[in-house]
Simulated assay, not measured.
Amino acid sequence: MSLQPLGLAVSALAEDLRSLGVSAGDVLMVHASLRAIGPVEGGADALLDALDRVVGRDGTLLMILGAEIVHDFVNHLPEAERPALLADAPPFDAVTAPVLPEVGYFAEAFRRRPGTLVNDNPSGRFGARGRHAQDLLQDAPWHDYYGPGSPLERFCRMGGRVLRLGASPDTTTVLHFAEYLADVPEKRRVRRHYVCRGADGPEIRVIECVDDEHGIVDWPGEDYFATILREYRATGRVRQGRVGQAQSELIDGADLVLFGADWMTRHFGPRHY
């Protein structure tokens, strides 16, 4: 009796990626659901092998990682209470901290992959690998880590494309850059406190940014990132296909950001108010 293969091989995934439009030298921001892609022989590592193979030595892969930090709960409490609760907290370690669970197992496999670089921001932690990895992450801003000068802006300036492999429609991280570009009055902002490694030991550091957790304004109904993506798809500027079993998309990052910023300005901006 012959054994059935465990799932898609690297070569089949690579062929699907090429058919979608991924090519050598691409700068890609990847959002992937392994469950949506279906059984893969080798799991997350095989998908990474396929991505590395298709973009080649001149290509670059970028992912948002976030971080699982045991003391992050304090950022949902009043600021005055935070220092006392953080007094004995272990410091955030950018190299070893697991990714946010909601980001997914594939992002954790990406973080652990030899050759992947990570930046040290506990809220805006990215991982990148390939030719332009250091250019994307080096000296990234501490505050407003999705805004001007961020890895997201650098990605757009490099002509980066967003690769969505069965990902949820509300997980298109590049649209956080659009939140900074949109002409919207009184965007909601937050301050977060973390224990980080300092020159003289653990220290509490503060991050200030627009509210990337709950949105820059209150918006009823579905996540507005999902609405923006759906309306952008309707313009016909999204390349679509399947990678494995996953409905997948390849999108020009800068074009999506400009569309998103315009959408937010029209719906949240001065005329809206």
Rank of each mutant, 00 (worst) to 15 (best):
L3E: 13
Q4D: 11
G7M: 10
S11C: 05
D16A: 13
L17V: 03
S19L: 15
L20R: 04
L20M: 09
G21W: 07
V22A: 05
G25M: 06
D26F: 01
D26V: 00
M29E: 00
V30D: 00
V30W: 00
V30G: 00
S33F: 03
L34Q: 03
R35K: 14
I37C: 08
G42F: 12
A44M: 10
A46E: 12
A46R: 14
L47P: 01
L48E: 03
D49Q: 15
L51Y: 08
D52N: 13
D52Y: 05
R53M: 11
R53C: 04
T60H: 10
L61Q: 04
L61S: 02
L61C: 03
L62W: 02
M63T: 09
M63V: 15
L65D: 01
G66V: 00
E68Y: 11
I69Q: 10
V70S: 15
V74F: 11
L77R: 15
L77G: 06
E79Q: 15
A80D: 11
E81C: 13
P83L: 13
A84L: 14
A84T: 13
L85V: 09
L86P: 04
D88W: 08
A89P: 03
P90S: 14
P91E: 06
D93T: 10
V95M: 09
A97R: 09
P98N: 12
V99P: 00
P101D: 09
E102N: 11
F106T: 01
A107H: 08
E108H: 12
A109E: 06
R112T: 04
R113M: 06
L117Q: 10
N119K: 12
D120S: 15
N121K: 12
P122K: 15
S123N: 10
S123P: 07
G124Q: 06
G127F: 02
G127A: 14
R131L: 11
A133W: 01
D135A: 13
L136C: 05
W142R: 14
P148H: 14
S150P: 02
P151N: 09
L152E: 01
R154I: 02
R154T: 03
R161Q: 11
R161Y: 02
R164F: 00
G166M: 08
A167T: 07
S168Q: 13
H176R: 12
L181E: 09
V184W: 06
V184I: 10
P185T: 06
P185L: 12
E186Y: 10
K187E: 01
R189S: 08
V190A: 06
R191W: 03
R192T: 05
G198I: 11
P202C: 10
E203I: 15
I204V: 15
R205P: 04
V206I: 14
D211G: 02
H214Y: 10
V217W: 05
V217I: 12
V217Q: 13
P220L: 13
G221W: 14
Y224I: 12
Y224F: 13
A226V: 05
A226C: 07
A226D: 03
T227F: 07
Y232M: 04
Y232I: 01
A234G: 04
T235H: 07
G241N: 07
R242N: 05
G244Q: 06
A246V: 09
L250T: 01
I251E: 00
A254C: 03
D255W: 05
L258A: 06
D262W: 03
T265C: 09
H267F: 07
H267A: 06
F268W: 05
H272A: 15
